[in-house]
């Protein structure tokens, strides 16, 4: 993984921790490919909305809540980073 990719992954982890108020957890505790919702990190539907808002604010991108693939983009830190990169390039 390139350095910019690593940085983006770390930034997204920090964003998740800060925006969702996760306690007693650091960016090292979240694996790049760990599922964020349900089993895994244990986030819920309210977190999904909150995280979507935080991503849109931080990266200046639009997320279509009704798009079929939006759900997939929020699977893990890796998929979110890929989504942010693609949206910023578009």
């Amino acid at each position: 993984m390139s350095v910019p990719q690593q940085d983006l992954n770390r930034d997204i982890k920090l964003l998740i921790i800060e925006a969702l108020g996760l306690e007693d957890i650091s960016s090292q505790d979240i694996d790049d490919d760990q599922p964020l919702f349900g089993e895994g990190l244990g986030l819920d539907s309210v977190d999904a909305l909150e995280l979507g808002l935080a991503i849109q604010k931080k990266y200046g991108i639009k997320i279509d809540a009704d798009a079929k693939d939006t759900r997939n983009h929020f699977t893990s830190v890796t998929s979110l980073a890929a989504f942010v990169t693609a949206k910023q390039a578009a």
Binding site: L20, G21, V46, D47, L49, E50, L53, K57
Partner: peptide
């Protein structure tokens, strides 16, 4: 600003 879904809920 958009409302925080967590705050709103």
């Amino acid at each position: 600003q958009p409302l925080s879904p967590t705050q709103f809920s």
